[in-house]
Computed example of a mutant assay.
Amino acid sequence: MRRIRTLLSKKPSKLVFNLRKYAAFRQAWKSINVNRTSYSKTRRHYDAVVIGSDEVWNIQNPTFAMMPEYFGRGLNAKNIITYAPSSSKTTYADVAQNPLLAEGMRNIHHFSARDRNTFEIVEKIVNKPVTMVLDPTFLVEYDEEVEEAGVNSHGYVLVYTYQFDRLKIEKTRRFARSRGLRLISPCFYNDWCDEVVPCTPFGFLGLIRDAEYVVTDTFHGSIFSILYGKHFGSYASEKIKVAALLSALGLADRELGGVDDIGSVLDARIDYGRVRTCIEQERDVSLNYLRQALAPAG
């Protein structure tokens, strides 16, 4: 019921968009091979449980359910590991003042993190090594999953954001007009764009792949721009995990905040050869961590 309420809108066009998006995601979900058997506390044990990724430790996020299992509590497993969790804006003090969370984390056997803030929180709470790893979206290939999103226009700026403020909208529209390009917003109803597209996740990949430019402020908008070698810019400074990602890959100069003419960033050349080498190195570290953490004991 809570999810259904998020679809409702007094604006008819937005309501239609939300319903089409919901239907698209439902259809896409059916194509994914997912084991629908959820974790059971009554089962005697699991060989291993992996906690992560994304903001499973962001207890400051009001929209996220703070499950005790995310912190290693009550898990019937011989081996508990984390993969690429993020605490985002949550601080060490936030976690430390809740003894149940800190105590639960001490039940975890192997730790990884995907940003420096999370890394440092773990270091302060548990006396165990922590490995910095890539987000799991970097570990697989998507060529076979990409779909055409049914967008007829060629030559567009893809705008991927939950919502931009007035200044960001103005700068993005000014840039698109200066290049004679359309603005397309996938997955979110940003009606200041020329077109909003309620596509599937696979259609979203196709839209990023075919875009002339990408303007975003999201973590995965930045990731897929990098994976597809796009001219992109990100309002990264406002989001810890986005800033950490770009810094780790030597792309901090893709920051759009404080830049009046965002074209100076979007048109700047990116050495994707160097970036891909960096990703491959970090991918090896990430996969080795998983192999070692999940290896049978003894």
Rank of each mutant, 00 (worst) to 15 (best):
M1D: 13
M1R: 14
S9L: 02
P12W: 10
N18R: 08
K21F: 13
A24S: 15
F25V: 11
R26A: 07
Q27P: 00
R43T: 06
Y46G: 01
A48D: 05
I51Q: 01
D54P: 11
D54Q: 14
N58P: 07
N61T: 02
N61A: 08
T63D: 15
F64Y: 15
G72W: 00
Y83W: 08
S86Y: 07
T90N: 01
Y92L: 13
Q97D: 10
Q97T: 14
L100G: 05
L101Q: 02
H109R: 11
R114D: 03
R116K: 14
N117G: 08
F119Y: 13
F119G: 00
E123T: 07
V126K: 01
K128P: 01
K128N: 06
V130F: 02
L134I: 08
L134Q: 03
T137Y: 10
F138A: 04
V140W: 09
E141S: 14
Y142G: 01
D143I: 00
E145W: 11
V146M: 04
E147Q: 15
G150R: 06
N152W: 03
V157N: 05
Y162E: 11
F164A: 05
D165V: 11
D165S: 10
T172G: 02
R173S: 14
R174F: 05
R179I: 05
G180D: 10
D191M: 04
W192C: 06
C193P: 05
V197Y: 00
P198W: 01
P198G: 05
G203A: 04
L205K: 05
G206I: 07
I208G: 00
A211L: 12
A211V: 11
Y213K: 07
V214F: 04
T216N: 02
H220E: 12
G229F: 07
G229D: 10
K230D: 06
F232T: 02
F232S: 03
I240L: 12
G250R: 08
G258S: 10
V259M: 04
D261F: 09
D261N: 15
G263P: 02
R274Y: 11
C278R: 12
I279W: 12
R283P: 01
V285Y: 08
S286P: 02
Y289W: 09
R291D: 01
A297V: 14
